[in-house]
Design a protein around this nucleic acid. Structure first.
Lengths: 217, 217, 217, 217
DNA sequence: TATGAATGAGTCTTCATTCAT
DNA sequence: GATGAATGAAGACTCATTCAT
């Protein structure tokens, strides 16, 4: 997770370093997504960044670490976008809906990255894999919290919040997995609406249902 | 898709050939599942079968074809088990439930194989990939048919049967994808029951719901 | 040069053995000629004979020996056809012409075999290579003798007969080497006539030339 | 026909690249010539250059391309040496003799390379093979032109120049093919003189013969 | 005699990674 | 920081050859 050239003394240099690393990560994400982790070569990635293969190793220890960076960048998206989407919202129903919506849209934006997580997590050494898992759990908690709130307010049935959050995640990932099959027949908006319908159908208490009906008016 | 030693003249020889191929496929499935397609070497597979590396190429043209065989064996399971499970059943509700149940259990039995399909389909040449896709669609149709029946009898709402079948498949695959996370907290039976609940909650007409309640008595 | 199954007790069996070996040699010649010694596999050869790969090893020790057999079969052709062509002829000029003609036609009949000799002699172990060389020299002698006769009778200039025989052989082989280039523009008959013209132009004494002119009448 | 490291940006780098490639080609030529294309391994070649096997693939795409490079280098020798030899000469007779002489000497310098062309052209993919053929034809034209000149000036009989050029080439190649047999008995000078004698004997018009006699004085 | 499944050494080739410049 | 030539370990695959049946 470290990098040789990482942040020396000057903040300017540190920023440049971060930029380079971001460039590399993006290129890697693109190529890993398109060709798969194994098929994408370091040389390809360097070429795409417009840099020599050797340089990548100034910013990354390993091809594995590059994979980590890519997966991390996806988790970053969740970690920043979901809280942002929830920011103004008080109502647990609205919060839950927003969380689901945001999660699904992030998946839909980079379906290959989501796939990559399933495909190649195994390729990571244990330590890196643990890191990813930890962050996934954190992301999950963002959703689980919305559910817990709903339960606390009597809008959701008293389900296992964490488990239900996994349900949400699975549904969202379902889009990535079957994108090639679904993309023609259904928009991501349809998919989200539909998924939410199912989830709420299973979750809402009568009170919750009533509240929802009012909100829809 | 053929191989040198494939089905000689005598049926006895053919059987032996089929057995060997099955052995190899199984070993490959195991190793691909455990280490990933790229990380598993032909040598490893041969070793596990207790055979020399060269021999594998008497039964398989390619490492790729071996992957195909593994993926195919999973699809075989669907193609044979689901119809078997539906065999005695008339009631669309029961049929649907049986299909979902069977599908999920097959996934749960070999979750790595399901993962493999997502992971490495890309590694297949187009022709083989098409083969897999075709068979996936066939499998899907088994479920879609149950749904269509239910719709025809007024038990299910008039949804797009095919799309809904994908929903089912995604849910089932969800178990495979998150096994490592769910397995401790939830049995596959719980998962199936829960999934069915959600699906039926979204699908059943009032008539269907009533019928279901009666059946549950 | 030996073979395991070679000539047991019964002459009938021996004949069958010889036939099999001839079949195998022919198939090998065909395939070596078409694809090259290395590219042609024992399996291919067996397939073409309609026999299992293992069987070949009852008649031949080695792939190398098979090559030897093929090369030998070409030398057999020279060894039997040239003497046959010379049989009735007394006149050294006619004998020389017949030898050249026959040699060239054998080359033209199986140009790939001639090429093979150049291509793959190197692949033979020393002992087998020596065998081939010895037989080549014998063949050469058939031509050299004609030349010596001509010299003895004052028809040819007193050249080095053996060396001149090589010249003849080279010219004949030239057809095999460049067959793909010449075949369209020139028949083998033209080639022979032309070659003979050159050779005789260089060889004939005035007496020889006169004798030739008379014979042409 | 390209290679990764081929001609970088700076001319200095380009020169180094060209040198490396030349080294590799030379080593390959040597080993292909000695052991044959198939028997010579990439590892052997690398070893001989004093380099790791992987490096070769920075300069060459394929073992096949390496063969092409070797064959090409022989054709380069013709393409540069023959015109150089003809440079100062006006007289068609002298030009023809010089062309034949040069061609033969190039063959004699690297007989294995000439053999290689016959042996392994087949191993080349069609596109590379075409390339070689094209260059062979060009080389041939160098000789054919001399012949045409001679005809135009009435020194040679009106033969088919191209065909006759093939004759010359065959004769020259004859030396390579039979080196092992002829080398002890005859020098290349003898061989050339002798060959020229035969060729001119067949080609010269009376005028040409007279001119030749004058020149010899 | 004949089979053909099985062997296993050996090949080409790829590619992450290093390091002198 | 940046380059890119060089490394070398490793993998898929082939095929002559063997041997139990």
């Amino acid at each position: 997770m470290s990098a040789r050239a990482a942040g020396g003394g000057q903040p300017a240099a540190a920023r440049l370093t971060a930029e380079r690393r971001a460039q590399i990560t993006e290129a890697a994400g693109e190529l890993f997504g398109r060709r798969g982790y194994h098929a994408a070569t370091m040389r390809d990635i360097a070429l795409r960044v417009g840099v020599s293969p050797g340089l990548i190793y100034n910013y990354v220890e390993d091809k594995e670490e590059l994979l980590l960076l890519v997966l991390d960048s996806l988790l970053d998206a969740y970690a920043s976008s979901i809280p942002a989407a929830l920011a103004g919202l008080r109502d647990p129903l609205a919060r839950f809906a927003a969380a689901v919506d945001t999660y699904c849209r992030i998946v839909a934006e980079r379906p290959e990255a989501t796939l990559l997580a399933y495909q190649e997590s195994r390729s990571l050494r244990r330590s890196l894999r643990e890191h990813i898992k930890r962050r996934e759990v954190e992301t999950n908690a963002l959703i689980a919290d919305c559910i817990s709130d709903g339960i606390a307010q009597g809008l959701f049935r008293p389900v296992d919040a964490e488990l239900t959050a996994y349900r949400v995640v699975m549904m969202a990932h379902g889009w990535a997995l079957k994108t090639w099959r679904l993309a023609g027949r259904m928009t991501i908006d349809d998919y989200i609406a539909d998924s939410l319908e199912m989830l709420l159908g299973a979750l809402l208490t009568p009170l919750g249902a009533q509240r929802r009906a009012e909100a829809a008016r």
